[in-house]
Amino acid sequence: MLELRLVQGSLLKKVLESIKDLVNDANFDCSATGFSLQAMDSSHVALVALLLRSEGFEHYRCDRNISMGMNLGNMAKMLKCAGNDDIITLKADDGSDTVTFMFESPTQDKIADFEMRLMDIDSEHLGIPEAEYHAILIMPSAEFARICKDLSSIGDTVVISVTKEGVKFSTRGDIGTANVVCRQNTTVDKPEEATVIEMPEPVSLTFALRYLNSFTKATPLSNTVTISLSSEIPVVVEYKIAEMGYIRFYLAPKIEE
């Protein structure tokens, strides 16, 4: 028996909106730790890892570890039917091939349930090794989204270079080139508006903008984004989910042939 009650149902709506275009089908794993997902995009270039810790749910019952295969497009369609203020409860019986999403309005005057068929998904689970990153960049998530969007109108790839002076995002395309430099800026009114570069070891990596733009669909989940970079390994783009966990996107770099 599985029963997960999430008072801030909008979080789950936002999570689905942020990953449904990157990943088609995925297994959601439920254990005593929480509700999690790990999945690659169809071209196996990016990986998404989601964790919603059990403590973040108002009620969390998971009698045994289970994995539920879902089509994320269909799940997003169902969650779109929940109001932004609704409480969302996920329910599944042992051995059942369906999951039920129950939506309760805050005043309890409307209760809806949507049942969705589960799928058998043969997914490969990857172990993500601990890495020491050369540079960790924390910046407003909206600013990062803006940079990715702007640069993708000029070129297809971005070179992210970190130096002691700051971080530079560069692209080039048929019509010209573009560079955006962000300097460390901690003298702001609100901490979420700061740009912080931790451990600024020089590092320069190239990534496909298409994927970074897709990751920025998670912007509504968090005011800040943390970007961890190290030479020749995937970048991690992390959006923390308040009080509950995180959504992390890993993207393999492009290498000069």
């Binding site: 270039v45 990857l126 492009k254």
Partner: peptide
């Protein structure tokens, strides 16, 4: 030209 790496080249399967 740049070659796009796959994510599984960096992470351990299983």
């Amino acid at each position: 030209p740049c070659l796009q790496r796959k994510i599984a080249e960096y992470f351990i399967s299983g």
